[in-house]
């Protein structure tokens, strides 16, 4: 009898002890907020563009962690960010459906602006300044190129311009050798 009973007893006691330990530890080392959510938010480009279908980068991070969204919805982040998120979440990478567009900034054609402040309200990073009935101006270096200001403009005076390629920001492309291309295909070319 004891051959059966003893192991059961030992296991039960051990289970209880470890359970208690875990319970205490979870109280003692409680982490505020979801650390995974924060690390995913860290990876996102913070354009706050909403192309993922969520109102911003943080909400998308939350959605990914809670399983509501896939890892492949951040368009501006591209393959690199997707791979990093997939890695963090421990899931298979998934191809991004949309091609990220070239980096852009919003530009307000001042003479057409009526000063309605609707774009100012739409901008997720407060990168448009202006007062009611005054021209509005985009602070180009703070604009994330999210295009959220384009729709609300009642007179359609906002253009998305491609950011000029700066000499200082230019970088060497991957060498055009077959092996280099193969390596990148292996890394990023999953459907």
């Amino acid at each position: 009898m004891s051959v059966v009973l003893m192991p059961i007893l030992v296991l039960a006691v051990a289970g209880l002890l470890f359970g208690l330990l875990l319970a205490v530890a979870s109280k003692l080392f409680k982490v505020e907020g979801n650390p995974l959510e924060a690390s995913i938010d860290q990876l996102l480009p913070q354009t706050q563009c909403g192309q993922c279908g969520f109102p911003g980068c943080k909400p998308y991070a939350h959605a990914v962690v809670s399983g509501e969204a896939d890892v492949n919805h951040c368009v501006p982040g591209g393959e690199r960010v997707m791979l990093q998120i997939a890695d963090l979440m421990g899931v298979e990478p998934k191809a991004i459906e949309e091609e990220p567009s070239a980096p852009m900034v919003a530009f307000i054609r001042e003479d057409e602006c009526i000063g309605c402040t609707l774009c100012i309200k739409a901008c997720p990073v407060d990168a448009i300044v202006g007062a009611p009935k005054q021209y509005h101006v985009v602070i180009a270096e703070d604009c994330t190129g999210c295009t959220l200001c384009v729709e609300p403009c009642p007179v359609d005076c906002i253009d998305m311009l491609q950011t000029p390629e700066l000499l200082e920001h230019w970088s060497w492309p991957l060498p055009g050798t077959a092996r280099a291309e193969l390596a990148h295909e292996r890394k990023y070319g999953h459907a």
Binding site: D41, L44, P45, Q46, T47, Q48, G56, C57, C123, P124, V125, D126, A127, D142, T144, H169, W170, S171, W172, P173, L174, P175
Partner: peptide, 28 residues
């Protein structure tokens, strides 16, 4: 190496900009 250096610099720039945007977004 030049490719790598350029990419690292671009990533650093992007991260710095993302951090700035995050702050602006949170402030808003």
């Amino acid at each position: 190496f030049r490719y790598g250096k350029g990419q690292v610099a671009a990533i650093r720039r992007a991260n710095a900009f993302a951090e700035l945007s995050r702050q602006r977004s949170e402030a808003r």
